[in-house]
Computed example of a mutant assay.
Amino acid sequence: MSTWIAGCIVLMVKMALVLGVLLFLAAYLVWAERKLLGRLQVRLGPNRAGKFGLLQPIADAVKMLCKEDIVPDAADRMIFLLAPAVVAITALMMFAVVPFGPPIILWGREIPLVISDINVAILYVFALSSLGVYGVALGGWASNSKYALLGGIRGAAQMISYELALGLSLIPIVMLSRSFSLVDIVNAQSGYPFILVQPVSFAIFFISAMAESKRIPFDLPEAENELGAGYHTEYSGMRFGLFFIGEYVHMQVLGALVAVFFLGGWRGPFLPPPVWLVLKIIFVALVMIWIRGTLPRLRYDQLMEFGWKILIPASLVNIVITGAVILI
């Protein structure tokens, strides 16, 4: 019984630490994005709340909590209220299988630095990613607004299309590591990171990950000049905040997956392993922000053609070549 209680305590501590770090990074990624985009566009960005605007995320959180939560009269109330939670919770749950360090010895027990090391972790990630589509689609449909509905339909089509390329891009990684476990994939990169031998997989995965997270130039579900705000047009208060948090947590999850699959995960010299993983997540997120401030938005037909006619064929060809090289 004491072993069972100790295991539960360790699990709860790991979950609390991961959740706290994720929410803290999500808040300050918003600040970093606004400051970096301000510099790219020759303006200041947030600079009033605290020195350098560092208290702006706290001010925004207070504002969201104090705003009135409005539900349109013609909306499907139950689905309208639940949709933002689906987006945020699925994004948070994906981090349960991400390893943030090698096992450590504490009080004579080996404690793995991952919430749950399951042998089908990649399938778990894709399952939750697929569920995230429901939050976007149902949020747009339940609002009973044509602009929100168009955003929800676009979001569902885009996420389903690019999820296929995302999954195909990881098959060479599974072939090289011979495992679906993220822990095993990181251990397989002890000699070199997989980005050195699979640059095509990396490029396809990174582009598809940006499309999955609905970031510019793939933000057609939220296109302001066409749809107002897309699938979350009718949301206000903290329910809009949940969509917002879900987007930035999703950025971190995708940054963690890029690090795990292609950058060696938590591996690196001099610094503790969890610090290396966090630095790689921040680096990937900053590259996404940089791309947002650089590239224009695609047209919707260009977006879909790029996914179906370029990324998916390229990923299939890469799978064949990788298999041939491994056999040879």
Rank of each mutant, 00 (worst) to 15 (best):
M64P: 02
V125I: 14
M64L: 13
K67C: 05
G108H: 14
L82S: 07
A74W: 02
L92I: 06
A74N: 06
P103E: 03
V71Q: 07
I118R: 11
L82V: 13
L131E: 07
K67F: 03
S129R: 09
G132F: 15
P112E: 05
D73F: 06
L65C: 13
P102M: 08
K146R: 15
A91N: 11
R109T: 02
R109G: 03
P57M: 06
P72I: 08
I105L: 12
S145F: 04
I79S: 10
K67D: 10
L54E: 00
R77F: 11
K67Y: 04
V71H: 08
A88G: 04
I89P: 01
D117H: 00
M93N: 08
G101K: 04
D60S: 00
V136L: 03
L54R: 00
E68N: 03
I118P: 11
F126M: 14
S130D: 09
L131D: 10
L82T: 09
K67Q: 13
E68Y: 02
F80K: 14
G139P: 02
N119G: 10
M64C: 02
I89Q: 01
V133H: 11
A142P: 05
M78P: 04
A61Y: 10
A91I: 06
A137W: 09
I104D: 03
L55G: 10
I118C: 12
P99L: 03
I58Y: 03
V86H: 15
F80H: 13
P99S: 05
D76S: 03
L113R: 11
P102K: 14
L65H: 10
K63G: 03
D73W: 03
G132P: 15
Y124T: 03
L106S: 13
A85V: 11
S129H: 12
K146L: 11
F126P: 15
A137F: 14
I122N: 01
G132T: 15
R109S: 10
R77I: 07
A96Y: 04
P72W: 12
A61G: 13
Y124F: 15
D60V: 01
I104A: 05
F95C: 10
F95R: 04
V62H: 04
V136C: 02
P102Q: 07
L138T: 06
K146W: 10
I104G: 04
A91P: 12
L131N: 06
S116P: 02
Y134G: 01
N144H: 08
M78D: 13
I58A: 04
L123Q: 13
V98R: 12
